[in-house]
Write a protein that binds this DNA or RNA. Structure first.
Length: 418
RNA sequence: CGGGAUGUAGUAUAACGGUAGUAUCUACGAUUCGGGUUCGUAGGGUCCGAGUUCAAAUCUCGGCAUCCCGACCA
């Protein structure tokens, strides 16, 4: 992508109606556009990041045996009335058409996925099965806040699994948790598996995946020596106490953002819809259901909160919109520089590297400032200086380390870079 | 939903009740070219609606919007 053709531009100043770091940086850099409180549009760069996040999730859910689907987000009110959610889920967006028919906007999809599963699952032979989707969710939050961390419309991956028994559910639940940790690790984050309440729809404990950041909304109590971690709302052992799991660590308290969660839904939804299957003996049985969510847009915001500095964003390589930011410093009489940069742009793309090429006719300082703000992991500069040495200047956005590399050396390093 | 605050060019900010100014931006012309060069010319604004007043960006009321704290939060 040539930056001169890019739809968006950067801004020097953050908008006055944003306080959250994630929103300030993402808007300044042109990744997102605020539509209204809690609702954002994703622009070319932002969509690239979001797609990278979604693809990581997609790969891990597929590895788990999940099958991707795309469910309706405009829901008939009847199904929500059938489960009671129409009255009890206060964040549910309800709307009425001109014909007075009522609808809900999807804030979660149990009401939709359960009847679909019911249609295709008739026998124990059809179980277990897991389906997931990645898409928009709508929640009528009384107070949207923290940029893209808590919106009224947001991106979410939600998966639902159906099982013959509680034991089979428990088996899958455990491997799903592991898959979740893989997702967050691949996205560059260190997420803690956290015990929490099941919310309004499960009496059992659920597990939340928490990333330490002051921008989060939850307080967690965790052990520095082992993996024990609990939401402050449920834990009986407080900060400063001894870890109940390993018996050694002194529990610490921290602010965290919930980037994912998994729930044991039991049989509530199949029961609401009369969903049964036949077991080996031909008896009617009710399946056990689990649901598993990851907030994709919140994950993106959390990454920005965790990985940024005073100059801008510092994307982890796995989610960055581009692998390489190529900058030409051609000056007034830099036709040779331009030619060389064009050539490098072409050869990098031929190697399958995603490159943002700043071919604009701007002063170097402005290009560098933009580059730091955008946060692409590797910056490559072509200038009269580098031309003389017959090398390229390669800078790592995260460490700031600069090295002069010949083209073969650079290409050799590329697998590590992107 | 309770409380608090704020709404001025695309963006960010000034203006005692009395000429809406500055920076950035955009366009054009010069100048400069390794960390947001410098100069010139031009463009563009008081959230909406009432009220008070000779006069309202400024005061009052209503609406709408945005942010913050809390409550809430699948």
């Amino acid at each position: 992508m040539r930056q001169s053709q890019l739809f968006t531009k950067t801004r020097k100043e953050a908008p006055s109606d944003e306080v959250a770091k994630n929103a300030e940086l993402l808007i300044r850099a042109g990744y997102i556009h605020k539509e209204m409180a809690g609702v954002y549009s994703y622009l070319p760069l932002g969509l690239r990041v979001l797609s990278n996040i979604e693809n990581i999730i997609r790969e891990e859910m597929n590895a788990l045996g999940g099958q991707e689907i795309k469910m309706a987000t405009l829901h008939p009110s009847e199904k929500w009335k059938q489960t009671g959610g129409w009255e009890t889920v206060d964040v549910l967006f309800k709307l009425q058409s001109r014909t007075e028919k009522e609808y809900a906007l999807g804030q979660s999809e149990e009401e939709i996925v359960t009847p679909i599963a019911q249609e295709y699952v008739a026998s124990y032979k059809d179980l277990p099965v897991a389906v997931y989707q990645i898409g928009q969710k709508y929640r009528d939050e009384l107070r949207a806040k923290s940029g893209i961390l808590r919106g009224r419309e947001f991106g979410m991956k939600d998966m639902y699994s159906f099982h013959e028994s509680q034991q089979d559910f428990d088996r899958f639940y455990a491997i799903a948790k592991e898959a979740y940790l893989k997702v967050f690790t691949r996205a560059g984050l260190d997420a803690k598996v956290t015990e929490a309440t099941g919310g309004s729809f499960s009496e059992k404990l659920s597990y939340e995946f928490m990333v330490l950041t002051d921008a989060g909304e939850d307080d967690i109590v965790y052990c520095p020596s082992c993996t024990h971690c609990a939401n402050a709302e449920v834990t009986k052992v407080k900060e400063g106490g001894t870890c109940p799991k390993c018996g050694k660590g002194v529990l610490a308290k921290a602010r965290a953002a919930e980037v994912g969660n998994v729930f044991d839904l039991g049989q509530k939804y199949p029961k609401a819809f009369g969903f049964t299957y036949k077991d080996k003996e031909g008896r009617e049985q009710t399946p056990v259901v689990g649901c598993y969510g990851i907030g994709t847009t919140r994950l993106m915001g959390t990454i920005v909160e965790v990985f940024s500095d005073e100059k801008g964003i510092v994307w982890p390589k796995s989610v960055a919109p581009f692998g390489v930011h190529l900058i030409s410093i051609s000056g007034a009489s830099g036709e040779d520089v331009k030619k060389e940069a064009d050539a490098l742009y072409t050869s990098l793309r031929q190697k399958g590297i995603e490159v943002l090429y700043d071919d604009r006719d701007l002063r170097p300082g402005e290009k560098f400032a933009d580059s730091d703000l955008l946060g692409i992991p590797t910056r490559v500069v072509v200038s009269e200086k580098t031309l003389k040495e017959n090398k390229f200047e390669v800078k790592d956005r995260k460490t700031g380390s600069i090295s002069m590399l010949s083209l073969p050396d650079f290409l050799l390093r590329l697998p590590l870079i992107s």
